[in-house]
Design a protein around this nucleic acid. Sequence first.
DNA 1: CTGTTGCATTTTGTATACAATATGCCAGAG
DNA 2: CTCTGGCATATTGTATACAAAATGCAACAG
Lengths: 232, 232
Amino acid sequence: MDGSTFPIARSTLPEAAAERLRTLIIEGELAPGAKLNERELSERLGVSRTPLREAFRMLAADGLLVQLPNRGAQVVALSREDVRGAFEVMGALEGLAGELAVERVTDDDVADLRALQIQMEAAHASHDLPAYYRINRLIHDRLNTLAGNAVLEQTYRTLNARLHALRFRSNLNPAKWDQAVSEHRSMIEALAARDGAALRDLLVGHLRAKQQAVLDSMDNRDDKNLLGGRQP
Amino acid sequence: MDGSTFPIARSTLPEAAAERLRTLIIEGELAPGAKLNERELSERLGVSRTPLREAFRMLAADGLLVQLPNRGAQVVALSREDVRGAFEVMGALEGLAGELAVERVTDDDVADLRALQIQMEAAHASHDLPAYYRINRLIHDRLNTLAGNAVLEQTYRTLNARLHALRFRSNLNPAKWDQAVSEHRSMIEALAARDGAALRDLLVGHLRAKQQAVLDSMDNRDDKNLLGGRQP
DNA sequence: CTGTTGCATTTTGTATACAATATGCCAGAG
DNA sequence: CTCTGGCATATTGTATACAAAATGCAACAG
C-alpha cells in the first residue's frame, strides 16, 4: 500500500509459491479451468500443503484462481463477459492514470517515454511482436507509476495479471498494430502538452480497441480452447 | 467473478473467520495499526491457527491487513496518501459505473432509485445520520450493480470496504450534507435522462467532495488517532 | 551510566496427522 | 439397459506438533 518500507523483502514460502504459481498460470503451464490437486502441486513445488493453501488464497483474491468449498481450486476460466468487464475497468483506471500523470510528469519523464516510443516503433518496424509487447507494457506501467497513486497502481497490476492469463498475444492483425502504435504516439504528445483530458480520451479509446481485438480473438475458434471452455 | 453458480454458498471456516474479522475491523473493534496475535485470535474466534492464517491472507489481499514476514499481521493504518488515492480510484470506478448504467437502466430501476432518494431526503430532513449513510450506500451499490460489470462491482466493493475501515462517518457538516443530497438528486435525473457523460461528471465530483470531507476530518486532531498514527 | 551481547520466552512458519467431504465404481432393482 | 444406492478411495478441511525466527530482558563491558 505505501511501498516505503523495505525489510529486505525476505520472501516467505506462501509468497514464493504464489509467485511461482502465478507465472505457471500466466505462461499457460496451468491451463484455464485446470483443477489443482493440493498434494500433487505441493510435491511439485517442494512445499507442504499449508503454505500452498495460503498461496491459493492469495491467487484467488487476485482472481487467478477460484476456490470451491471441499472441491479445491482451479485456474479461472474467463468468460467473454469477464474479459469485457475487465477491459472496461482497465480503461477507466488508465484514463485516470493519464489525468493524474499530466499533473506530475517532468520533462525528463517525457523524454524517457519518447525513448521507449522509439524502441517500440523499431520493434513494430521489424515485426518483433514479443519485443513490442514488452515495451508496450513498460510504457503503460510507467504511465501508471507516474500517476503517483499506489492504490491505482496496485489495482491496475492485479487486473492486468488476470488478463495476461489469457495470453492473447497471439493474433494482432497489421492494421490494428499500426493503429496502436500511432495511438501511442498521440498519447505521448498529449502527455508532453500536459493535456489531461485528451490523454484520458486517448487511453480509454486505446483500451477499447485492445478490448475489441481480444474479444475478436476469443470468437476465433482456434483460440477458444485457451479459455477453458466455460463461456455459455 | 461470474456470480451465476450457487452451491448453496456453504461457508468454509477461513471464509467465516475472514468475514468476522472484516466486521471487527470495520466496526473499529480492531483498531488501525493493531497487531493480531494468531494464538489469541484463534482462541477468541474458536478456530485453529490454520484457517485463521488463510483468513489473514484474504484480508491482506483486500488491503485491510498488512502481513510482515515473521512478524505477523496488523490492521492497516491508512495514510493520507492512501485515502487520497483510494478516493481517486473510487471516483473513476463510479464514473464508469454511471456511464455503463445509463445504457442498461430500465424505468423500473429509475423508479426504485427515486424511491430511495426520497427515503434519503427524509433521513436528511430528520438528521438521521446512520439512516442517511445506509441509504446512501444502497444507492451507490445499486448504481454499481446496474452497470452490469462483475469486475467493476467487485473492485468497487473491495475498495469501499477498505475505506469503511476509516469509519469517517462522524463529522459531516450541514452545508456539505445539503450539497451531497442535492448532488444525488441531480445524479438520478441524469440517469433518468440517460445522460451518461453528465452522470459520470456528477459522480466524479461527488466522490471528490467526499474525499475532501474525509481528508479534512483526517486533519482534525480529534480523529487522528482513529488512523493509527502512521501518516508522516 | 550507556551500549552491547547472549539467553529465555514468545510468536510466527511449516509439516504432518487426523477428520470430513466428495468422487467414482459396482451391484442390484426396476 | 438404465437408474439408484451404497461402499471404497481420493481429496480437501482442520488441528496440532515441531522448527525457526523475533522480542525482551538481564548481565556485563566500556
